[in-house]
Design a binder for these strands. Structure first.
Length: 574
RNA sequence: GCGCUCUUAGCUCAGCUGGAUAGAGCAUCGGUUUUCUAAACCGAGGGUCGGAGGUUCGAAUCCUCCAGAGCGCGCCA
């Protein structure tokens, strides 16, 4: 429990006991009462809106009520050493020295767990799931890193997390892909020109795969595509999954489970799933309306099995069968999600690219239907990564083959920088990724700033010839913080709140933003010694005050925990 | 036509379960180094929070409408 939670609970209890003293008729909206970090200029530790919340529901002037609550706080809560009323009725609170010391030591003791909000759920996070038709591109990297770090964050909070990759190794795209490999083989072996059909993948990596297959099997007669299809498919898929796994590894991402679409088909899971849904009357035979968007020449009015996703909030019902009666991608995907539900996770999360936004309603509907609304599928969308090269926008397309691959990016920029940059923005907004700019290894990169703060702390510890400190004997009488130290301590105290809010809505960008702010405070604290020698931390290889030792250890703990969640390295020396 | 996301300083973005004088970085201008790491720090200027209504004691934040940008809108995957 952090200081905000702890004291909020204390305040709740106090209000209930002292209801009459405060002349309150109604105690409602307790959930609206918050303990927050006050704006910096106020120089207080905590800020509470209680007088405004209770004032509204009891028709009392917030400021007058605040005055009474202030008395109560000072009288009854021993950790509060000063309380002042500000603005429309906020109560700004200073913590007592003993409370500060106690909290400092509790953080040092918690160490690598500091900030964790203990919950105990199970999560399945599906992410990347790039088609196995070639290497990953820059856009995939964003979702990959987001999913990976989301998993880390949930694990940090004590949950059990499975990171899963769904391999779409079935269907017409795969056929196009294998055909592309086939034509490249013909090109290499028989000098037949690669056809200019727009369903083929023109990327050069296809040639590499073709060469690999040729080298592995020199005797095979490749002249008949249909005859060799299964062999070519297996080899090609294997090759492209190898490419993808290699990219993932270079980005520092490890999935726990790779689940293949063809497994769904082979095990006939779709029929089983559809039978279940039929019994519940969520799947029925019927006709669909023509699509509302662009005209589709292939559209035919044929009776087929339909999932009634409108029952679960979708805009229209969805086809499970194609014209020829075979299953749609969606049908397979429902079966896959059925499997996930059956595996017993309490929470399902899908991380998707922006181009799959339109898919969310139907798959969420499907999970509701499968689980009788017991399991909610949470879909998070990562917006586009817009590439700029030579000052011009750079379009990515797997088919065109002119995308920038993860590999090319990794050749220029290290994995830590890519991870940090991809996360240093809300998933809801596009990222302008200036290829040339990111290539420059300059101080512009915020990751260096955080790493540098950590390196500076380690430099101090080296000078002091000490390592991490687990307990500091701070004497309440001597204990004194200057204004800068108070700011840092408050920032450190805020860490569990950051984790809490980042977890709540999966807002991962809050972590790098926070780490940057904390580093700013630390660099300022450090630099004071440059301006004025009295503020140097060390004298004759001894720390000047115990408070300094406490602060550098606290900052180190938080940076380490934060960067640990991001899985970005922290050099001790730079 | 419909759905999702976005619109905040010159640029890139935080802030959104309603609260205090709307914050950072970059860029611009001006300072700091015989050092515990200057890859750093300090200071200055810079705003009609896309527009219009509404709810409220109080709106960048919630609701409605409008405008602009992006992504989607198969029986592709």
């Amino acid at each position: 429990m952090n200081i905000f939670e702890y004291h909020l609970k204390e305040i709740h209890n106090l209000i209930l006991i002292k209801k009459d003293f405060l002349k309150l008729d109604k105690i409602e909206n307790l959930g609206k009462i918050n303990l927050e970090v006050p704006p910096e200029q106020f120089n207080f530790d905590l800020s509470c809106n209680i007088a405004m919340v209770l004032g509204t529901s009891n028709k009392l002037a917030p400021k007058k009520l605040a005055e009474k609550i202030r008395e109560l706080f000072l009288d009854q809560i021993k950790n509060f050493s000063n309380v002042e009323i500000a603005g429309p009725g906020f109560l700004n609170i200073k913590l007592s020295k003993s409370a500060l010391i106690e909290n400092i030591n509790s953080i040092l003791k918690n160490n690598e767990n500091y900030g964790s909000n203990k919950t105990n759920d199970t999560y399945n996070i599906e992410f990347v799931s790039a088609n196995p038709t070639g290497p990953m591109h820059v856009g995939h990297c964003r979702g990959a890193i987001y999913g990976d770090v989301l998993g880390n964050l949930l694990t940090f909070n004590g949950n059990k997390v499975i990171k899963e990759y769904y391999i779409n190794d079935y269907g017409s795209q795969i056929k196009n892909f294998v055909e592309s490999v086939y034509f490249r083989i013909l090109e290499i072996k028989f000098k037949k020109p690669f056809p200019k059909k727009n369903n083929l993948y023109p990327g050069l990596y296809i040639k590499d795969i073709a060469v690999k297959i040729l080298n592995e099997n020199k005797s095979l007669n490749f002249e008949d595509f249909e005859k060799n299809f299964e062999y070519l498919k297996n080899k090609s898929l294997e090759a492209s999954m190898q490419l993808i796994k290699k990219d993932l590894k270079l980005l520092g991402i490890n999935h726990d489970n790779f689940f293949s679409e063809s497994e769904i088909v082979n095990k006939d899971l779709v029929n089983k799933t559809v039978e279940v849904l039929k019994k519940k009357k969520y799947v029925e035979k019927g006709y669909l309306q023509p699509p509302k968007g662009e005209k589709d020449d292939n559209w035919k009015k044929v009776e087929r099995l339909i999932f009634k996703s409108t029952l679960f909030g979708d805009d229209t019902d969805r086809a499970l069968q194609k014209n020829d009666g075979s299953w749609t991608y969606f049908a397979n995907d429902i079966a896959y999600h059925m499997d996930k539900v059956n595996r017993g996770y309490q929470n399902l999360v899908n991380v998707l690219g922006a181009d799959h936004t339109g898919y969310i309603k139907r798959i969420t509907a499907a999970v509701s239907a499968i689980s009788e609304k017991k399991i909610k599928l949470n879909c998070k969308v990562c917006q586009l990564v817009k590439l700029f090269k030579d000052g011009k926008p750079f379009k990515m397309s797997k088919r065109a083959g002119d995308f920038i691959s993860a590999q090319e990016l990794l050749n220029e920029v290290d994995k830590d920088s890519i991870r940090f940059i991809m996360l240093n923005r809300s998933n809801d907004v596009e990222i302008d990724f200036d290829f040339d700019k990111v290539k420059e290894k300059t101080k512009d990169n915020p990751i260096f700033y955080v790493q540098y703060a950590y390196a500076r702390i380690n430099s101090l510890l080296r000078t002091l010839n000490t390592s991490f400190v687990e307990k500091i004997e701070l004497d309440e009488i001597d204990f004194n913080l200057n204004e800068m130290e108070e700011k840092i301590i408050r920032k450190v105290f805020e860490w569990p709140k950051i984790i809490e809010s980042a977890t709540k809505k999966f807002d991962l960008h809050k972590i790098p933003f926070y780490l940057y702010e904390l580093s700013t405070l630390f660099h300022a604290y450090w630099s004071r010694g440059n301006e004025d020698k009295r503020y140097k931390f060390i004298e004759n290889e001894q720390i000047k005050r115990k408070e300094i030792l406490a602060i550098i250890n606290l900052v180190a703990i938080v940076i380490k925990n934060g960067m640990g969640i991001l899985d970005v390295s922290l050099p001790k020396k730079m």
